[in-house]
């Protein structure tokens, strides 16, 4: 279980999170939606310690995310970044097996390569790409490699930051399906942040709507369309008018 308890975060005068409270049950897939700049990525980065909240607590299985052994804590997570965040200087297989080539999970290079190729196959890539560099891959392939890296060490918790941004609708559908399959087969707890409603319907068990730094609505994806929440309704139907002010 991941619990956000009244989390606040500001950047200078800009208040991004204003008391975000949310529970993500273990083994479920939560999708956080909301407009650009509403703090979705900030929330994920607060869990991982990439950004320190100004106040409030984030608990992971009851333990405070800010205390304890950092390496052991982070070893439980995998993350797919919006732009892939693949390391340009390393070939694909070393990107995927990054965690297995150093640190506490270090394995012999040949074994790490085998695992990396296996994970690449799992995301629909052949062994041919293992020795290519990220710059030689298309956007969709980079997302798949990022996904393979996120799952390489079999994490308990996986974060997906806008996994379909910049992809064509077919590739976006493929990535959505992959994420859903992987989360289900690994039994992992997943948090995805996205604007893409087709991703929400494909990936989510539960949905949370973040607006003005607080969760406006949360519930099962099946109840999303009949929520009656004006913020959620406006967002999922993409209406320009409603309680969410559209900057023109």
């Amino acid at each position: 279980m991941i619990r956000f308890e009244n989390v606040h975060k500001s950047f200078g005068p800009k208040r991004v999170l204003r008391g975000m409270t949310l529970d993500v049950p273990k083994g479920t897939s939560m999708v956080i939606i909301g407009g650009s700049g509403t703090g979705k990525s900030v929330a994920l980065k607060c869990v991982l310690g990439l950004i320190k909240p100004d106040s409030g607590r984030i608990l992971v299985d009851g333990g405070d995310a800010e205390t304890g052994d950092r390496d052991a804590f982070l070893a439980r997570f995998g993350m797919l970044f919006q732009g892939g965040a693949l390391f340009d200087s390393l070939p694909v297989w070393q990107n995927v097996a990054f965690r297995l080539l150093r640190g506490a999970l270090k394995k012999p290079a040949s074994e790490a390569r085998e695992i990396a190729i296996d994970k690449l196959r799992r995301v629909g890539l052949t062994a041919d790409v293992a020795d290519l560099y990220p710059a030689e891959l298309s956007g969709g392939m980079q997302k798949r490699v990022g996904l393979a890296r996120a799952i390489c060490a079999d994490p308990e918790i996986i974060f997906f930051d806008e996994p379909t941004t910049g992809l064509d609708p077919i590739m976006a559908g493929v990535i959505n399906e992959l994420i859903r399959e992987i989360v289900t087969e690994m039994g992992a707890t997943a948090i995805t942040i996205t604007h893409d409603m087709s991703s929400v319907r494909a990936i989510a068990d539960n949905v949370a709507m973040l607006h003005d730094g607080v969760i406006k609505w949360t519930g099962p994806v099946g109840k999303m369309d009949a929520s009656g929440d004006p913020y959620l309704d406006q967002f999922i139907h993409g209406r320009a008018t409603g309680p969410i002010e559209a900057v023109r």
Partner: peptide, 13 residues
């Protein structure tokens, strides 16, 4: 700017 440094952190590095 491409979040590779953030990615390092999430990979326990």
């Amino acid at each position: 700017v491409t979040e590779q440094i953030d990615a390092l952190v999430t990979l326990s590095t």
